[in-house]
Design a protein around this nucleic acid. Structure first.
Lengths: 345, 345
DNA sequence: TTGAAAGCGGTACCAG
DNA sequence: CTGGTACCGCTTTCAA
């Protein structure tokens, strides 16, 4: 039976140039849109005859039909999109791997993971832009999202908001990734090795305060109530700055330094060595993040290895929360830290 | 005037828990949905009285109304979403900065940038998942997208497909980011400095072939027709592997090595030095990507600095192509490379 | 200046 | 087993 289009002569001159819809597939297969939907979604509540299924599949393939996610989620009233704001600063291999793991784990649970490039600084206004996409879950690394932002997301249908930062936010699940454990480990390690005048490098680069402040704080905590002192050392990520700091090193009277991460450690350690300061005899140096390259320094760099939650764990937490949103926001302390003692401390 | 809901008693028991729509705003403001749309979009073709505008804005704010992007783009027939597949491997600070720049530039042109976490390896099936989102443009770094994938995207409404890779793909704009210029620069530099037996490190890590193969090829090209030889040196990113390679270094009889990038350079250089091989006297070492840390090595690491296109340029190209899709796919050679000669070569 | 109504592409009821 | 149809939330004519 030949299908006759309902509209006798559609004004569109070149139908080939437009995007195929399920109606086009239905027309070509000689069935209704409903049937197309049933077939392509393998709807179990409905049995479609094998010949029909084949015709639909063939028509879909021939037209290069791809379903329209927006239309689908509009109708469904919800999506399976997990939204993660894209980081605005260069991110280390650690976080990179974590993100890839997480994406794969979520993809395995049939979520669509999307990193949204935010215009302004991650803030409550950014939350509005995210909310427009009606994600089912939002994972926000770092701080910067306030209770208002969380509220906006929740009001627009997000069933889960998870913050991966140093603090708990009202209304959101929190994966407390408080970097203070890093500083704490480093501080304790240095104290145990007899160091008492501890410097802590704080990067000048913007966007890193989120991590550097808690790390500094962790060192402070670790020596609280002892006779050890903690000195904050602002440092920009370039050789001259490091050289300047090294030049006045002896006047600072420090016997140890925790450098925020391995990159700053390598930068500073090189400058110290060039200045004739012996490591670790005169000054112990501890970095963080366990970069491969730290092992190449002489002396080999001691470092604090951060243990991020594995992607699958987090993915399952998200999935659980999506399915049973009644649960109160949970707070988990997710971060572990281990000192890898090598030669520089 | 009190508004009376059209439906006498809607079955929804808790309307407070559902997402506010423009209809809710209209109801609260005592106007029609059309008016709400006009006000919130500042539609210039229609003049709305000031009191009405205020009422609408207040209602929207009170309800915490956020427009539904899917519904909007469904109605409009197009979106302003630019889709970029998320990289699946740890990415350097260089590319990281490039991406951030690009995102900002596109955001300034009022596009929504979204990185899509692909399940499988970037391929033509992944293109289907991207196409479901109906992005107006797709930027694909690396290779892995074939002509079929491009066709799928185009058929589902993408007005621009740009590949940022080593090769041109049928139907897509190509920003030829052929990393061969990196290898070429390094090879030429080494040849100029009298080196004739050149090794090239090729990382064993998966996902890096996209870059390593062209870089190797570039070195080959640079010495074609001369008496110089090029030797491929597979290397995993760990200390033992580097030590093993260094142990048999003298038997290889090489007087120079280009190491893919600075990280591998540092790894290998350390191993060579530990083996007692003098750099650069016996063997010259050149890395790539100009990492800060390379400067800290002794001898300071020579490197090839890659010049990525600036984000704004690319954003404008995309914007132009979106607005005038009639244009033939263009092919641009976007990559420059400069040798930074320091002490290791 | 404002409102009614027709869709955009899919899904899921209910009837046949 | 399949077709008709009423939506999902929003924009945009066309009338009033």
């Amino acid at each position: 039976m030949v299908q006759i289009p309902k509209t006798p002569a559609p004004p569109s001159p070149a139908p080939s140039r437009s995007v195929p819809t399920s109606a086009d597939v239905a027309r070509l297969a000689g069935v209704s849109r409903a049937t197309v939907s049933y077939v392509l979604n393998n709807t179990s509540a409905v049995r479609i005859s094998e010949p029909t299924r084949r015709r639909v599949h063939e028509a879909a393939k021939e037209l290069g039909y791809v379903p329209h996610a927006a239309a689908r989620s509009l109708r469904a009233g919800h999506s399976r999109m997990v939204l993660i704001p894209a980081p605005t600063f260069p991110v280390g291999p650690l976080y990179s791997r974590f993100l890839t793991d997480l994406q794969n784990a979520l993809a395995a649970l049939d979520y669509t993971v999307v990193q949204h490039g935010t215009g302004g600084p991650h803030g409550d206004e950014a939350a509005r832009a995210w909310a427009e996409l009606r994600p089912v879950a939002v994972l926000v690394p770092g701080s910067g999202l306030g209770p208002r932002g969380v509220a906006v997301l929740k009001r627009s249908g997000a069933r889960v908001v998870v913050t991966l930062g140093p603090e708990t936010i009202e209304g959101a699940h929190a994966l407390l990734m408080d970097h203070d454990v890093v500083g704490h480990s480093a501080g304790a390690h240095l104290y145990d090795r007899g160091r008492r005048r501890i410097g802590v490098v704080v990067p000048q680069e913007p966007g890193l305060e989120t991590f550097s402040a808690p790390r500094l704080d962790g060192v402070r905590q670790s020596v609280r109530g002892t006779d050890a002192t903690v000195t904050e050392l602002p440092l920009a990520y370039d050789e001259q700055a490091a050289a300047r700091l090294a030049a006045r090193w002896r006047s600072l009277g420090l016997d140890a330094v925790f450098t925020y991460n391995d990159e700053y450690a390598m930068l500073l350690m090189r400058a110290l060595l060039d200045e004739g300061i012996r490591v670790p005899e005169e000054t112990a140096v501890v970095g963080a993040d366990d970069l491969m390259l730290g092992r190449l320094m002489r002396p080999r760099l001691s470092t604090v290895r951060l243990e991020l939650p594995c992607g699958r764990e987090l993915a399952e937490l998200v999935d659980r929360a999506v399915r049973k949103p009644a649960t109160e926001p949970e707070t988990h302390k997710m971060l572990g830290a281990t000192v890898l003692h090598r030669e520089s401390s």
